[in-house]
Amino acid sequence: MALTAYDLSGRTAFVTGAAGGIGRASALLLAGAGARVHCADRDEAGLEETRALIAEAGGAAHLHRLDVADRAQVEAAVRAAGPVHVLAAIAGIMHSGSALESDDADLERVMSVNFLGVLHACREAARVMIAHGIGGSLITMASGAVDSARPDLFCYSVSKAAVVQLTRTLASELGPHKIRVNAVAPGWIRTPMTERHAAGEQERVESMMVRLSPLGRLGTPEDVAHTVLYLATDASAFTTGQILRPNGGVSMPW
């Protein structure tokens, strides 16, 4: 396959969660492939760092400070980005606790970001793509947690399972409009979010993940971002409704 399949010159990409971790790594790769990148996050300082890194690499980024749980903010930002060819809905949060320990407020908070935030962005990006007749790629962020029953990650796991079903449903609905919809379900990746979740147990958790992986190492945000790049480009032109798992081959529950 020609490398031109990974050329995003002349296309616009909108990335949520772009202030750090997988979102930042994805924004950098998309910009490196030639896309005009719009970076969205509620962390203004992190967004500025992402913009500086993209500029250092010779690209340019437009910033949107917003909370993905706020539907109006998300819709306005996506519309302001103009014709969007690629959406990478990566923003997310974690919450520790079982079904019996978590209350409705916990579930509502996680769902508002991890599910509704993705839904708001995907729905508006799809409307823009359809209105301009350009087709495109919607990329959602699931998790390896959807492949196992983790009682201590009840809210998080449920929210990511909802993202998986959203992805499949949208792929079926939007295919006739030449819009592809796929999810990325990473394994354990060292990001600010997972570091906060590990809360002092980072070394133990990462050591366990290294042992579980046939590749014998942890994944990086860049490892996941390369999957996002693939789904954003014409290299994945016949891929939709799929859940891609950049997880180092880990097949056991984590």
Rank of each mutant, 00 (worst) to 15 (best):
M1F: 10
A2S: 13
A5I: 04
S9H: 13
G10K: 08
F14C: 02
G21L: 03
G21Q: 03
G21P: 07
L29F: 01
L30T: 08
L30R: 05
G32F: 10
G34Y: 01
A35W: 01
A35I: 08
R36H: 15
R42C: 10
A45S: 12
L47V: 08
L66D: 07
R71D: 14
A72S: 13
V74S: 05
E75N: 08
E75W: 02
A77T: 08
L87Y: 06
M94Q: 11
H95M: 08
H95C: 05
S102K: 03
A105M: 02
L107H: 13
L116W: 15
G117L: 08
V118E: 05
E124V: 10
A125R: 05
V128I: 14
M129P: 09
H132I: 02
G133R: 11
G133E: 10
I134D: 08
S137M: 11
L138S: 02
G144T: 02
P151I: 14
D152W: 09
C155Q: 03
S157W: 01
V158M: 15
K160T: 09
V163S: 04
V164L: 14
L166F: 10
A171C: 13
I179C: 02
R180V: 12
N182R: 13
R196S: 07
H197Y: 10
A199K: 06
S207N: 12
M209I: 13
M209T: 01
R211K: 15
S213V: 09
P214C: 03
R217Q: 11
L218T: 01
T220L: 04
T220Q: 07
E222C: 06
A225W: 00
V228C: 03
Y230E: 00
T233V: 06
A235V: 01
T239N: 09
T240D: 02
I243D: 07
L244I: 11
R245L: 10
N247L: 01
V250N: 09
M252A: 15
W254L: 14
